[in-house]
Design a protein around this nucleic acid. Structure first.
Length: 426
DNA sequence: TCTGGGGTCCTAGGACCC
DNA sequence: TCTGGGGTCCTAGGACCC
């Protein structure tokens, strides 16, 4: 058996931990640039505010109902997330699935104790961190996700749900709509409905062959097996899982038209991506750069282009990566457009110690490595701002950064910055 | 006026090899 | 007229997740 633990309304719940006055009142958290709503309290959901809705569209409801609005505070959420994961390790090996979700291996827990275990996990997380979570327990990941979903939707279950017996699993399959299953998105849901498949029970009644044909091949077949209680996805307990792609992409707060400003932005994003790359001790052999105009604008002429530059040798050197990124940018830049977004994606990532040299590249890489180490050390120690202003950086990334993000309503980074630590006035 | 960012996996089809 | 069989690698695109 394994458990899926999912924090309720995670970002909003993090804000509430440090501002208890936000409890029982509608609260939303915004995406970067204060653009969209990406987390909602139950009260906000009840008002009809939708996930991913642009702020300006929800503004009438927000003002009328006095909804509290926060810019995103990812330093805080990331730190709270780590504490949750750390706490979960008390109960078994943990697979961190996302910032607010984790699977926990409960194979060592006797069947008779599972119910109690689920309740304890909930209580401990709330006691230690003040965060509400739901717990779903089942023999497969997909069923554990389903159990968690049911726990969330039915207040009577007290935030926990066990699908430990075939009878309970069959009952759950009859109650669950296919569109609520992990791995079935909008497209597949519509397709399944066309074929009169509405519940999970309907789905597993179809043959594997049918599912293969209509649900993305082997992915669908595995999904079906998992829903029947036969595991197809193993838990994975890697401490720090190494990413295969590392991206840094942002919308600008205002339109950019000049190559120079785009160069600054691309250099800045490349620096960020390179930092992430070094943190997982990897090097990248390719870098993709893209720029685009505002895709929502109906009148403005549209332009969207990307290019991938291959490096002769995998690298984790910011300066080198910036050079290639700017080379790519040069190729795709077209004057005369108003750009709204740009980004870089590092790919073909390999462990840093596996970088192949060849006959023609005999440069001493240790110099670059030492420089990067010094850079990272200084920035970890001295940077004040989350990402735009490093203590030490490359001139190509610019200093003024007119295009940088708007963050107007971010709460303090209570747990990671001494200057922003919680103050209590009595 | 104002619309996020970061990931994963799989498949089909083309190009190429012997 | 009749035109094999088996394989790899790469890319684009589609689906999904949070």
């Amino acid at each position: 058996m394994l458990a899926l633990i999912d924090c309720n309304n995670f970002f909003v719940s993090c804000e509430r931990v440090f501002q208890p006055g936000l409890k029982n009142t509608p609260v939303v958290v915004l995406s970067n640039n204060d653009g969209c709503i990406i987390s909602r309290s139950q009260e906000a959901k009840d008002l009809g505010i939708k996930m991913g809705e642009p702020l300006f569209k929800a503004r009438p409801i927000i003002e009328q109902a006095g909804v509290r609005v926060f810019s995103s505070n990812f330093m805080l959420y990331g730190d709270m997330s780590q504490r949750v994961m750390q706490t979960l390790k008390k109960f078994g090996a943990v697979e961190v699935y996302s910032i607010d979700e984790a699977f926990v291996d409960l194979s060592h827990v006797p069947a008779a104790n599972l119910e109690k275990c689920a309740a304890t996990i909930r209580e401990i997380i709330y006691q230690y961190l003040g965060l509400p979570v739901c717990v779903g327990i089942a023999p497969t990941k997909t069923l554990a996700k389903a159990a968690n979903h049911l726990a969330k939707k039915n207040p009577a279950y007290n935030g926990t749900m066990l699908l430990d017996t075939p009878a309970k699993q069959a009952a759950a399959r009859r109650h669950l709509a296919v569109e609520n299953i992990w791995g079935v998105g909008r497209r597949y849901a519509a397709k399944l409905h066309q074929h009169q498949v509405y519940t999970v029970a309907d789905l597993v009644d179809r043959s594997s062959g049918w599912v293969y044909k209509h649900l993305g091949g082997v992915v669908g077949v595995r999904l079906r097996q998992e829903l029947l209680g036969q595991p197809c996805q193993e838990l994975s307990f890697k401490e720090e899982h190494v990413r295969k792609n590392i991206a840094c992409t942002r919308s600008f707060s205002q339109y950019i038209t000049t190559l120079n400003d785009l160069q600054e932005a691309v250099a800045t994003y490349t620096s960020r991506a390179a930092e992430k790359l070094r943190r997982q001790r990897s090097a990248a052999k390719a870098i993709t750069v893209f720029i685009r105009t505002n895709k929502f604008s109906v009148q403005a002429p549209q332009y969207h282009r990307a290019t991938t530059v291959s490096l002769p040798l995998a690298s984790a050197d910011t300066g080198e990566l910036i050079r290639y990124a700017l080379q790519g940018l040069q190729q795709i830049y077209q004057p005369g457009y108003s750009y709204k977004k740009a980004g870089v994606i590092l790919s073909e990532i390999i462990p840093e110690h596996q970088v192949q040299t060849d006959l023609f590249h005999t440069t001493d890489r240790s110099k670059s490595q030492k420089l990067m180490q010094a850079l990272d050390k200084l920035n970890t120690k001295m940077s004040k701002n989350e990402w735009a202003i490093n203590a030490v950086g490359y001139a190509a990334a610019g200093i003024e950064k007119d295009w940088k993000m708007i963050v107007t309503r971010r709460s303090p980074r209570y747990t990671t910055h001494w200057q922003e630590i919680l103050e209590i006035n009595i």
